[in-house]
């Protein structure tokens, strides 16, 4: 049995698992000091246990348990690493109601955060992966944690989930980046995790205020276009993407309204990553001048 503890932004998780490949995978994806946990309080007590009965050996399965409870069906054992990452996303969204948890990527440049909510297939993860390889700091790929007290986004700096074609696109785009082994035949197809840039992991303690909310959409052969979008429409859309928006009731609305008041709201259509990098750089520069 392998036991470890690790820091994930504001959280600490413990992991118990017989799957050594999962532990190796985590050490490949997270900086070593993140496993150096002295506090004995953990937020998530995770175990990736072997399947039950015959599934312990035959077509071996992995079960995700958080403090003894299993929210998902078992998966084939070779999916243990992505399952750990998905399971943590689930556990954070289900528990961390001290934050407004928005299903969105969050990246930072010049002290301002861009929140990128994305419907599945909108190319959010690919775009995020490209931007953080070109100077933006990764706060989160899937879950933007907004602190209600000050509206800041709190970083997680965890690996980015890439699917299918995006994996090869990113290997070409950032040959120096670190990727996990590919896992095939998952519910999302083939997946691989891209390690967060070291600078993002080192600065995981630095939260930052929101500067832009950008709704990205990948469209074949489209010219890159960053169009301003109605803030009320953007607010409705982001409330829809907030996993615990209704839980925060009136305060949740006020937090989002304040964020929209101080931020630019855009719809972004693109087909080429290089164009996207340029438009986002222009966006970050424009706010420095104003």
């Amino acid at each position: 049995m392998n036991s470890l503890a690790m820091r994930l932004g504001p959280f600490t998780a413990t992991l118990e698992t017989p799957f050594a490949s999962l532990v190796d995978g985590l050490h490949q994806l997270y900086r070593p000091e993140l496993f150096d946990v002295s506090d004995s309080f953990a937020d998530f007590h995770v175990s990736l246990a072997p399947g039950k009965g015959v599934r312990r050996w035959f077509r071996q399965q992995a079960r995700f348990l958080v403090d003894g409870e299993s929210p998902f069906m078992p998966l084939p054992a070779d999916q243990a690493l992505p399952m750990f990452e998905w399971g943590l996303n689930y556990a954070i969204a289900a528990q961390a109601h001290q934050y407004l948890v928005v299903h969105a990527a969050a990246i930072e440049l010049n002290g301002r955060v861009a929140i990128l909510p994305g419907a599945p297939g909108a190319g959010k993860s690919t775009l995020t992966a490209a931007l953080v390889q070109r100077g933006w700091r990764l706060l989160s790929d899937e879950l933007a944690l907004i602190r209600p007290e000050d509206g800041h986004v709190v970083p997680l700096a965890r690996p980015i989930n890439l699917k299918n074609r995006s994996i090869d696109i990113m290997r070409d785009y950032a040959p120096e980046a670190v990727f996990s082994r590919e896992t095939h035949d998952t519910a999302k197809g083939t997946v691989a995790l891209m390690r967060a840039p070291d600078d993002s992991m080192r600065r995981v303690g630095e939260s930052a205020p929101v500067g832009w909310i950008v709704f990205p959409r990948w469209k074949e052969d489209a010219e890159a276009r960053m169009e301003p979008w109605s803030r009320p429409a953007g607010l409705m859309e982001i409330a829809h993407n907030a996993m615990n928006y209704s839980l925060h009731e009136e305060r949740g609305f006020n937090v989002l309204a304040n964020i929209f008041e101080q931020s630019g709201c855009y719809r972004f259509t693109y087909s080429k990553l290089d164009d996207a990098i340029e438009r986002f750089a222009a966006l970050a520069a424009s706010s420095l001048q104003s």
């Binding site: 504001p10 506090d39 309080f41 937020d43 528990q95 961390a96 001290q98």
Partner: peptide, 14 residues
């Protein structure tokens, strides 16, 4: 501890 307080506050919101 602060880390435990975060869980209590999350539970209060819920």
């Amino acid at each position: 501890p602060i880390a435990a307080q975060a869980h209590l506050i999350a539970a209060r919101n819920l």
